[in-house]
Design a protein around this nucleic acid. Structure first.
Lengths: 157, 157
RNA sequence: AGACACCUUCUAUU
DNA sequence: AATAGAAGGTGTCT
């Protein structure tokens, strides 16, 4: 399996409000940048979307190290929260609904095909790729606001 | 009888721990705000205290609509739990002791002089007065913690 | 088993 | 200052 690095970040002005995601894929020193946005979303949905878009960009099963600054995303996977929510019908331990189940379903499905190690990185702490993802996410959120519609883009090589 | 609206809320950091209550009385478009705290209490005792302080502020029998977000308080009155506990010597249906009987005694006594309709409001749902009461309760709990002693305050008009 | 409330911690987004 | 999300817990009752 090919070894890939994926870096992700989300942004959302207003929260809820117009939001964007930024994703960098790296394979053999070549990078591909993805970004996009949604005119009405939340910070956490954009963090999740950044992960989804990165994994969906792969055309075959890969071995991935994925970096995110979202404890929500990282803990939900590495601590087994998401699997537990799905098992219990998207209900949390306190019996209240676990949110964003639509996106978690997609992520869990993608994790069944790829081998992914999730790594948490502290936000705004000088991590080069995380800060580039943040720029992309902000750009996505700005375009979503001006467009008033969802969109996706690919840049770089 | 004068028609009064009373809004109440309680807070308690730690639970048990330092707690506060907040109460708003409204009569003819004039409002009075009460708050206070206790360095060692529970959330439910503060919810009850908010009710007691509001009713005790009245100098004559009134017709009151009282709003609380505590099902414990609302159900104990509207479903007759408190009357039942008192009748059975402060014993619950499961034979265990009913708690906070000291405060329930005071409330039942106040209900004998005033005509009160209890209304439950959902907490943290944009209810203006409930959120103001929450602010007052938090202030009371903070002052109780720093003072290390119980106190009561009256503000507004 | 259910309900409401009250918290403690954590991260991100503003 | 606030929102979006999660874990763990107590206070109380039916």
């Amino acid at each position: 399996m090919k070894k890939i690095e994926i870096f992700t970040d989300g942004a959302c002005s207003g929260n809820p409000g117009p939001g964007g995601y930024g994703t960098i894929l790296r394979f053999n020193n070549i990078s591909k940048e993805l970004y996009g946005g949604d005119p009405k979303t939340t910070n956490n949905r954009m963090e999740m979307t950044a992960v989804i878009k990165g994994l969906q960009a792969l055309k075959e099963p890969c071995e991935i190290t994925l970096y995110s600054d979202s404890k929500y995303v990282i803990d939900a996977i590495t601590k087994g929260w998401a699997v537990g929510w799905k098992k219990r019908g998207w209900v949390k331990a306190d019996k209240k609904p676990a949110l964003n189940s639509d996106l978690w379903e997609i992520i869990l499905q993608l994790l069944a095909v790829h081998k992914v190690e999730f790594v948490w990185v502290k936000g705004h702490a000088g991590h080069t790729e995380n800060e580039r993802c943040d720029e992309l996410a902000v750009k996505g959120s700005q375009e979503a606001r001006s467009l008033g519609a969802s969109f996706d883009k690919v840049v770089g090589e």
